[in-house]
Amino acid sequence: MKLQINNKAYDVEADGDTPLLWVIRDELGMTGTKYGCGLAQCGACSVLVDGMVMRSCVTPVESVAGRSITTIEAIEEDEVGKRVVEAWVKHQVPQCGYCQSGQVIAATALLKQTAHPTDEDVMAAMANLCRCGTYNAISAAVRDLAEEEGAQ
């Protein structure tokens, strides 16, 4: 099966029903995308598929063959993703950091779709769990980005 991840083509051996998460982590060795629950509950496994956020722990790898997948490893190659990372640093968001790959991906997906999201948009899109309780720092960072002049 052929996968397009971070603008590179990969041939993978995994069965088609293997979750994308485990193909990325184990077969391809990219560990930035995290396993938290395996049930699409926590969002630590979030990746972009054609610019939309998907929870890779419940996404069969065969369903994304041929589509453009972006993981956290390439997030700064995306204009929006780069701004999100900068905002995460500016607002000193991460604590343990385990959920933050997914949070950055979720914020990137939101801002790619809606450059100036409302608070309700942010609330709806930023639903990933964080056990360290970085939620206020996350919303401050996303609100900052949502209000940026340069955003399209």
């Binding site: 995290k34 640093v89 000193q92 991460p94």
Partner: peptide, 27 residues
């Protein structure tokens, strides 16, 4: 003082036990 680990944790480069691997390992 700013935390020294926020950038790595924002781009997926921070390494946790679950991310470790060695040659020849099985799962």
């Amino acid at each position: 003082v700013e935390r020294i680990d926020v950038y790595e944790k924002s781009v997926g480069k921070a390494i946790f036990a679950i991310d470790c691997s060695v040659d020849g390992m099985l799962h």
